[in-house]
Design a protein around this nucleic acid. Sequence first.
RNA 1: GGAGGAAUAGUCUAAUUGGUAAGGCAGCGGUCUUGAAAACCGCCGGGUUAGCGCCCUUGGGGGUUCGAGUCCCCCUUCCUCCGCCA
Length: 425
Amino acid sequence: MIDIKELRSRPAELKELIERKNVRVDFERILGLDETRRELIGETEKLKAERNAASRDIARLQKEKQDASAAIAATRETGDRIKALDQELKALEEEQRQLLLAIPNAPHPEVPVGNDEEANVFVREWGEKAPAPEWLKDHLSWGEAEGFYDFPRGAKLSGSGFPLYTGPGAKLERALIQFMLDLQSGENGYTEVSTPFLVNSASMTGTGQLPKMAEDMYYCERDDLWLIPTAEVPITNIHAGEVLDAKKLPMKFCGYSPCFRREAGSYGRDVRGFLRTHQFNKVELVKLARPENSYEELEKLLNDAESVLQKLGLHYRVLTLCSGDTSFASAKTYDIEVWSPAEGKYLECSSCSNFEDFQARRANIRFKEGSGKPRFVHTLNGSGLATSRLIVALVEACQQEDGSLLLPEVLRPYLGTERLRGPAA
RNA sequence: GGAGGAAUAGUCUAAUUGGUAAGGCAGCGGUCUUGAAAACCGCCGGGUUAGCGCCCUUGGGGGUUCGAGUCCCCCUUCCUCCGCCA
């Protein structure tokens, strides 16, 4: 959520920044409401001061056994006026809050300006593209032939976009999740958490999925709960409403969760295999950081996400997203894209973002240092990583001519073998 | 699902038949000191204001009242017990 005070003090500057995200924002209504709001506050507070003083007088009169009925009658009227004004004020504040909740975060001033992914900026790459010999099969035809996954039966259970992993495929995915959790909670120093996968509306609003993304999420009406589209939501909200000790910052969490996305409106795009699904598995990284060094923490978070691909020996590149491609709540985002030899292109497998205080203000996550007033933390997160697109790259890069997978060293302890074959072989 | 109890600021803990939130601890700044401790002073939820100040804040929302932490209703969470259950 944008700070109303900031909005009041430099509206033109903020409008220009936010509109770099390729959206139009209108601050006039909100600033008008704010002015009325502050006028109303002045009025009601004056009346309340009157009422408080009158009440004290009444108490004093009654203590002295004097008649206070005239004062009581007069104050009753003041009370009625306060009630009416308070109701007006409350409605106005709610309207202002709804408008504020719908405004995206401003991108960092140094984020490259652009409309779409064409304007994203190359940062660096690691490793080399795996070869794509004639016999190489893409992840879909190879995996279904080898019995690693079964999309038709997944569709039978739930519908298209719900993958079913089978046999060695299920084991491979489990191994990847465990390897990533061990890496992040081990040498990378994150505290591992296992969270609820259904959350309430307050949590969804805290991280910015609500109100704007309601159509993209699964909702259980009966219990008023949402299926999480990413573990970012429960993990970031762990300390919602709290005031944290500055000494504990940065706090670093990692956690696995399935992710549920309706992907409304994206039918027909990247629908093959694992490229875009309604359910996928992901290990997420979240940090709560001090505002002063949140951008240093973003670089470290990015390195931690990259370390997964490095240890797996998979070629990837890092991009800075341009303003138009940066998501609603983010101020700056890096994407990590892993190379798919059979597709012959890069696949997004991680987004690492700094949300600055945008989520912290919504979720009310603050920290206090010394005698200072509580301030909002900066929140960051990144995938570390999503398994679906990782598996695409992995099975293509590690595929041998005989159809087996020659596993990266780091995965062998988890699978108890260096070579994985499907039951079909 | 049923019965009972509880929720006060970072934390702990008070507040008369309803009278306008008192303290302790932790933390931070200052005085003093070679340095530290102790002691003493100040700060330590939010809104509004240039500031003084004023207003709000006792889990959330309503109600009664001149006035609600306190009385009434609804909700949430936690604890105890009963029932059901992997």
